[in-house]
Design a protein around this nucleic acid. Sequence first.
DNA 1: AGGCCGTACTG
DNA 2: CAGTAC
DNA 3: GCCT
Length: 624
Amino acid sequence: MATKATRGNKRGRISAPSVRPEDEQIFKGLSFFYVPDNDIAPARRLRINRAKEFGASWTRDLMTATHVVVDKKLEYKDVEKMWPKDGFGGRTPPKVVTEDYPLDCIQFRAIVDASQRKYLVNGQPEVEEKEQEKEPELPTPAVDFGAQAKSKSKSKSAVSSLPLKPQHHNKGKWDYVPRKGTPSQNGDTGIQTHSPSKGSDKAGHTPLLQDELSEYISMMQEFKDLPLDVDEEEDAQSTANESDAQLDLDHRSGSENESQRARRSSRRARPTSKAIAFEDRFACNRAGKKDANQDNPNARTIEILQKMNGYYERINDHWRTIAYRKAISILKQQSVKITTEEEAYRLPSIGRRLAQKIEEIVTTDKLQRLECAEEDPTDHALQTFLKIYGVGNKIAEQWIAQGWRTLEDVKQHAKLTPSQRVGMEHYDDLNTRIPRMEVTALGDIVKKAAAEIDAAVQLIIGGSYRRGAESSHDIDLIVTKPGTESVAELRAFLSRLIDQLERDKFLVARLASSHAGGDGSKWHGCCNGEYRPIWRRIDFLLVPEAELGAALIYFTGNDIFNRSMRLLASKKRMRLNQRGLYRDVLRGPNRAKITEGELVESRDEKRIFEILGVKWREPWERWC
DNA sequence: AGGCCGTACTG
DNA sequence: CAGTAC
DNA sequence: GCCT
């Protein structure tokens, strides 16, 4: 602890409060008196600086304070004995709150009701509503989630009902996490969850896209325990919009309905197609990946957690990997820097242990556990081996157990499958990212060859390319053709295409191809790069037009996005795979007899989103 | 205590 | 069926 | 590691 603090101070990381933009100065005009009255403890120092960032002043004179922020470990009597004997001379006495209060305000970007029970200091008597009800210092007390500002009373109750249970933080978390943003921009039009780039976008940073993301993910979370049986049968097919509306986020606490409504309608009133095209092109640029990662105030935290995640992935700690992945995903959505354990802990998917790690990262700029991990000498070998195509952690572990540490060792001793041999021999090539331009060029080569065989066939480049990536690990080609209903109708074509491209010396290796006969639908292999003799990974996926929508989702990813979609589907008793969206009739007891389920939609990507109740996201908005 | 996506291909 | 890839 |  002490070490950590010292280090943090030395590096000056926590003592440089950056000032927030005007519209985030929620504490303007407020002054906080802290108990204990010092910033020695690093955690408190952080909190004080945070409050300053958001416009608060730190006072050490009780008489000028608007709020007294008390350490949670202290008792109310500790505060009481500081109270001036002659009162405050007619002036409104400061409100006494726990240290959670400023944090909540910051998190929700609004002055929340200070009289909530959760902000009571130990042993503090509950006070009558009246005194606390008003926030006299505040010019605009309803700086709040857009729509709620419409009706003060509603907004008030909504805000004060914020996180009722700090313990089981999830409920509270989920209700509000997605709600951050810059309410002032939206005025009473409600938070524009759908057309984010409207107007304000150009002017300044717009966390709204990120909001959509959190919203989506939070929605998944919420659906976990919901019955959702609201006549889905009928709705699903016939009235997508209706079900969309129903399934949207309004299953939460009643106090939020107002905002729900606004959000819904704003989404309904989505701009016409032309407007979309324009705005989305813009959104593409900033929602893509670059900005999302660079702008993120938690970039450093994410970076380190990602390394940690990578480590667990390597050592095959599957479930821990999942936990980290979720946490990282949540963190990426935050538009605010998460600096303290408590703050982190409020977030969904972040529990005690991760929260502690996050605080450690913020204060010390590193993570002990990671340094340990990276010192492990076998880890480097592990990393190397895992980048061989066809080698996963089982094999890699075996090799390491044999004492092998380098590719050279493997080359000499290991018995390789044909795929692994290719992976070995072209290790460097296959681990070199492919610039977007080259993906385009290679795609064109294939398209040209395809057109000569069957002009009706369409080729779509999927994967990260479709998400707008500047470079890709491989080239994913979706092969489809209007009017096709099954993979079988495309197999002959693919076979001819492959043959031709091999004759052309374009394709140079097969890694995994559907053998003759089977219901194979994929082909994995390598091709020559466009400009240099460098090998590239290329995949073909056969997709009948009837399943194009589902396949596009699957092959566009990213993987986290896909898993989320599927998880959501399963929570709604549906099933999503690369072939379509199905309603589950039943999941067999020993899973042997899974009833396929009835196909709901597969052709239309957008319809699948709609039926799932997920707002449409353009491919480049699918980076999680 | 038990789940954490769901599928295709290889050997 | 386990392992791997997507 | 997180969540129900």
